[in-house]
Computed example of a mutant assay.
Amino acid sequence: MENNLDYNTELQGKIALVTGGTKGIGKAIAESLSQAGATVIITARNLPKDVNKAHNFIAADLSQTEIITKLANEITEKFGRIDILINNMGANTLPGGGFSTLTDEHWDEALQVNLLSSVRLDRALLPNMLAQKAGVIIHVSSTSGMFPLWEATMAYSAAKAALNAYSKSLASEVSQHGVRVITVSPGLNKTEAMSAFLEDLANKAGITMEEMTQNLMARVGGIPLGRMAEPEETAALVRFLVSPRASYITGANYAIDGGNFPVV
């Protein structure tokens, strides 16, 4: 069968929201969706100096319920709808060291940033998707949600595991109404956040960043491809999943980890 699809325009006319879209994986996703023809809205707490002027930036702290409501209203007023929602917000900034180092405040922060912000944003934007009987929601999780490291990612991993379960449940509920919900679980990505995480671990261990990088790769069982992912590689998967080419995919969790995940 002849394929006449133009990948550079396959998202033409679509309106996409990418949370955490000013750096790292979120920035790469925003760029990729824009290249495919989508109108892209990005959110973050602060506007960086190097933001792509072609993207529509809205400042928002998505850990606050009232801000999410305000964001949803602003999007509806300015753009009318959302066709693609990329819930990319998330962070592992809590202290390592296991259960004894994590306070109730730490646990609450992990859940707010890595789970509940996505739940609330879905709740705010899903009604319009359901009304138009079309839409795609991507939850950017982490392989840490399936492979936790007690000494470094305990609360973060627990929150991401909860996001995985929520995403699967939501897909089962809304896919029959035309809205696809998919989880993407990146492994180690070469981002600013990862560099800061590795630097902190290296300083605590008294070793170099290069040594800590190798230690972390070994700790997660090794990466057959032998390197971290570039954010653009993760973005390429997301771009495919939100496109018409992936129209029969929903409820799945895609690990993009260079072959790291140690189970079949």
Rank of each mutant, 00 (worst) to 15 (best):
L125M: 06
L126K: 12
M146K: 12
V136E: 02
T153A: 06
H139L: 15
V174E: 13
K204P: 04
M89H: 02
S144R: 14
V140K: 06
L115S: 08
M212S: 02
S157I: 13
G187W: 14
T143N: 03
G80K: 00
E210M: 01
M89G: 03
A131T: 11
T103W: 11
S169P: 13
D122N: 12
N164A: 14
L201T: 01
V119T: 04
E109Q: 07
A165R: 13
V184F: 08
S100D: 14
V174P: 04
D108W: 09
L116P: 03
D122T: 03
T183D: 03
P224G: 01
M146Y: 15
V140C: 06
A159N: 09
Y156R: 14
V179G: 10
T93Q: 08
I182Q: 10
G221D: 07
R120W: 05
I207K: 04
M217N: 02
A131V: 15
L225N: 04
S167V: 15
D83G: 06
V174Q: 06
P148V: 12
G221T: 01
E210F: 00
L170Q: 14
R120Q: 03
T183K: 08
I182F: 08
N164E: 11
H106I: 08
P224E: 10
G226S: 01
V113L: 14
T101G: 02
Q214K: 03
E151H: 07
A91H: 09
Q112L: 10
M212Y: 05
D104F: 08
A193H: 03
W107V: 15
G222N: 00
T153M: 12
A159L: 15
L102D: 10
Y166A: 12
A162G: 12
A159E: 03
A152N: 10
S172F: 10
W150C: 06
W150Y: 14
T143F: 02
I86W: 00
A171L: 02
A134M: 05
G221P: 01
I82N: 01
H139A: 08
S195F: 07
S172V: 12
G178Q: 04
V136N: 06
T208C: 06
M212I: 04
M209H: 04
L111E: 14
Y166E: 14
F79S: 00
L170E: 13
I207Y: 03
G96M: 11
E211T: 07
P127M: 05
A124T: 08
A91Y: 05
A162C: 07
A193Y: 01
M89V: 14
Y156G: 06
S117Y: 06
E210G: 02
P127G: 07
S169V: 11
V113P: 07
L85V: 05
A218W: 00
Q214P: 02
S142P: 01
R123L: 11
G222H: 04
S142M: 06
P186Y: 02
E199D: 01
E192S: 08
A202S: 05
E210D: 05
A205Q: 05
I137M: 07
G226A: 07
D108T: 10
R219M: 01
I82C: 02
L126N: 10
S117N: 06
Q112R: 09
H139D: 15
S185K: 09
G98H: 11
R219L: 03
W107M: 12
P95K: 14
